[in-house]
Design a protein around this nucleic acid. Structure first.
Lengths: 130, 130, 130, 130
DNA sequence: GTGGTCTAGACCACT
DNA sequence: GTGGTCTAGACCACA
């Protein structure tokens, strides 16, 4: 589990954990059915509070990324996986809007913005082969 | 000044103001050199406290979007406008990363993500001509 | 924490706090990694409002002197410390210019000005050993 | 009169005027006995308010740099010129302290600080010959 | 308990 | 009238 937490960052630690795990799933480093470390062990690894890890796991569960069983602990969802439904798309657009407005003000074209997006996509996808 | 503020939103009010003004600049509805309402009047218009507006203006000043001078109050920056330099690009990539990771997990391809971005771009740019 | 604040001074209180802490760092009385009192406790100590302290801390953060994280509160920066880069030097020259112009008008030579500077330097540096 | 006023600056305009005139005296571009432009004309030249210029002149008078007569208007002081007395020196030290504390934190030595001061001195003094 | 956000109201410096 | 500063007190997110 390669989660690098930045305590200086203004993004809450639990959000950083969520991002890290979602990114791990995107990179296929975390496979459906795979178990995540227990709340206790992850908290110990990262040197942070139990509650913080727990909150991150609860959020991942709410979004459908993990399932939490008493026996197996926290496991990457195998079925009922999050989808790109309409609600998600409009939410994504809301999140993109301020970023794109900023980009436009700085003189970026849609092509240049696409290049940036592509770069991030490329950085994510081919990691599977490594 | 068409700023629609959602007092219930979890995004801070001052952030919503910043986003709204940046978006106004992107849409060319706010031109360089144009003055913004005073902290007091905008606060009264929005029904919020003047300190909240002031914080938004200070943030816009730090990012280079507006200049605050003693004569005219707050004005959209004319020179030394924010640029798409390397620091900005890496910051943008950091902001895009969790969004794109999420999109990948939901089975979106880069093409589909581009479509969404394009839609937001289109929503921004041509407003000037309308 | 030996900050002596003059509430009557025309220099804002938060500026006095910033100066005092920077001076404490210069004197090595405050070491990198060391924690500063919380906004609330320092405000109570100084008999001022917590917002005033907060503003001072935010300024110190912007200048790179302290880091604010959610665990330990406010801490003197350990890495990425402020440097004497070109931007700083030109800013310093701008600040010195009116002081030196005034000094010249009063008949001071560069040597005499150096003596004053040296005196201030001496007052700062050797405090560590005492 | 080459006063360049920066409306964006956080230093008050009247302070900028004071600094500019004191600097002019230091550079010997303004000689004792020489008259300054009237409040009205300077205000018109700079495109600022009468009160602002007046406040600057009053400050210069208080500090002993100019004399104000009804007939001659504002004139650079010929006698009773400001001196580098003890009060001035301690005031100067107070002004230098935060600058030097900052410089020390950024790793500057007293020698390097002297170089900067020298540069400013040199920039002031030899202008007379041009 | 920490800092972050917001409110309400006040005084002052500047123009 | 403008923004800058400061106060007092409140609620919330975070850890």
């Amino acid at each position: 589990m390669l989660l690098d937490i930045d305590l200086q960052s203004e993004t809450p630690i639990y959000t950083q954990i969520v991002h890290g795990i979602v990114e791990g799933i995107a990179r296929k480093q975390l496979q459906p059915g795979e178990g995540l470390p227990s709340v206790r062990s992850l908290a110990a690894d990262l040197g942070i509070n139990l509650h913080t890890v727990n909150k991150a796991y609860q959020l991942l569960r709410q979004e459908g990324y993990v399932q939490i069983n008493r026996k197996q602990g926290v496991v990457i969802t195998t079925d009922a996986y999050p989808t790109a439904d309409e609600a998600y798309r409009s939410r994504l657009m809301e999140q993109l809007r301020p970023l794109i407005a900023d980009a436009i003000c700085r003189g970026m074209t849609d092509k240049q913005f696409e290049e940036i997006s592509q770069a991030v996509f490329q950085d994510m996808l081919p990691k599977e082969e490594s």
